[in-house]
Design a protein around this nucleic acid. Structure first.
Lengths: 275, 275
DNA sequence: CGTACGCTTGACAAGCTTCAACATAAGTGG
DNA sequence: CCACTTATGTTGAAGCTTGTCAAGCGTACG
């Protein structure tokens, strides 16, 4: 009997730094596994919740056997690979509410290393004992397919972004993307802490650290942002959108779909919007 | 009763330009739908096989409702979007044996346009009547999850490639990727026809057409490739790998996994290799 | 056989990286 | 709590890669 005690949908700190379950990428999967039923301990056998993670802690390493999908509850992570030349290449950043490790499903191993950018917590869903789900397994898969499909479209987009655009456009696109993703999970969309270093941003965008620095300075001189260290405020979203005019397809769709109740992943075209 | 007549696993032209079913990305899904049983017409109600496609023909357009996943049987396709500025941006190329349209699953619409680069044929799997699969639906989903996971890892990789590397490295990586993908589906890995224009390659790699031209010429001058128009021969794979030292993760894994019999998608860590 | 499109090549300009030096912030031990 | 050390961030100048513009060439297709 763990029940509500371990599922604090609304914690004391309402505007806490921890994402609500309803806004988490794992929500649909957890719900399938019995989240809605406090008496069921099925969920607890599949999902280890609220695991604290220290800064710089490694969640999984490149090549580790795939067994778990993580959801970031609070804090932020980076995924990266380190080729032979030793220079770390950032693959993606992962903020509260987003999933980590899905890419390992096909290969059976995680293709990159996941490391915490700051202290935080995760929920860990074990994929080893999904047979416990029984009849719910099919529904579970449907939600998983939705998650994968959404990530696929998002990554195609990020890939295209990186190829086509100039340094200025990339940084604008990056800031807008962070803003949108934080906003989609219930955090402030125009004022936040960028938990990663300038080096990480540069690696992610395929630029030199110095270029990122200069661009932050220029954006600030032009009144578009205020950047003091990791603290970042987007003052003029429209100006940033002017620099990066293309809207990401399905940016927030992952969440909408995942949170929509009763969606049949393979036939529904997005389902209804979450109020 | 169509049976074997419509499933020519070995056509008259053994080394035909058409990929074998066993090497096709849809194979595991087709098998689930009854490919192994010639008497079953279930497959025919779900998959429209060997549809001819003319050069430049559009398979689906950006924004069209998602209903079908295509497998390229022969020929090649490009997927692209055309933003407001009117300049077409290539998202990805798709060769024989590869899937098209998976990205539409989450959004319910195809996020880009798919167009034939040359005359070819496709198999079209309708996602509207999957309820026909009945008890096999779960297995079907497992294979689908594998496909999605594989594509996810591959796209992460392509994205990273585009960001980090110089023009020279990108073209080397591109040629190696084409080589590997063609080889994985039973075609020659060091001598092939590049069906797309230099413009398309440039757009895909985020370079100017002229840069791609100059690089082809330089590669040829250095004896790494022979390029006469679309005909391409990779003479020195090792030299190319020297330019682009990082191995793509799970490059051929999609096929291996999809073709492996009886793999349970969510638990198997890659399964056995296909002989 | 002719025309149109794609491909190739050259000259120049711009943007970004690299290298180097310095400033600031974050961590560490006395 | 402060001084020291190390990592991270910022700024400037020089050079190289790549894009842009312009023109000529080859080839494919009607």
């Amino acid at each position: 009997m763990v029940g509500e005690q371990l599922i604090p949908r609304r914690r004391a700190r309402c505007c806490s730094d921890e994402v609500r379950c309803e806004a988490c990428g794992l929500y649909a999967l957890c719900r399938t596994a019995g989240l809605e039923n406090p008496d069921s301990d099925l969920l607890d056998r599949i999902v280890a919740r609220h695991q604290p993670v220290a800064k710089h802690e490694i969640l999984f390493g490149a090549g580790d056997a795939f067994a778990t999908v993580y959801a970031v509850k609070s804090g932020a992570f980076k995924t990266s690979i380190t080729p032979d030349d030793g220079r770390e290449q950032i693959i993606e950043f992962h903020f509260a509410g987003e999933l980590l490790g899905l890419d390992g499903i096909a290969w059976g191993r995680y293709p990159y290393t996941a490391r915490a950018l700051e202290p935080g917590s995760v929920c860990a869903m074990s994929f080893d004992h999904l047979d416990l789900l029984g009849a719910r397994f099919t529904e579970f898969q449907s939600h998983l397919i939705h998650q994968l499909g959404g990530r696929l479209a998002q990554d195609q987009w990020a890939s295209t972004l990186a190829r086509r655009y100039s340094a200025e456009e990339r940084l604008a696109g990056f800031l807008l993307s962070v803003s949108e993703r934080l906003g989609a999970h219930g955090f402030s969309a125009d004022e936040f802490r960028l938990p990663m270093s300038r080096d990480d941003i540069a690696s992610y965008l395929g630029l030199a650290t110095e270029t990122v620095c200069r661009l932050f300075r220029r954006f600030q001189a032009e009144g578009m942002v205020i950047a003091r260290g990791k603290y970042t405020r987007l003052c003029d979203l429209d100006a940033l959108r002017g620099l990066f005019p293309v809207q990401a397809p399905g940016g927030g769709a992952v969440i909408e779909v995942a949170a929509a109740p009763g969606v049949h992943a393979l036939s529904a075209a997005g389902g209804g919007r979450v109020p």
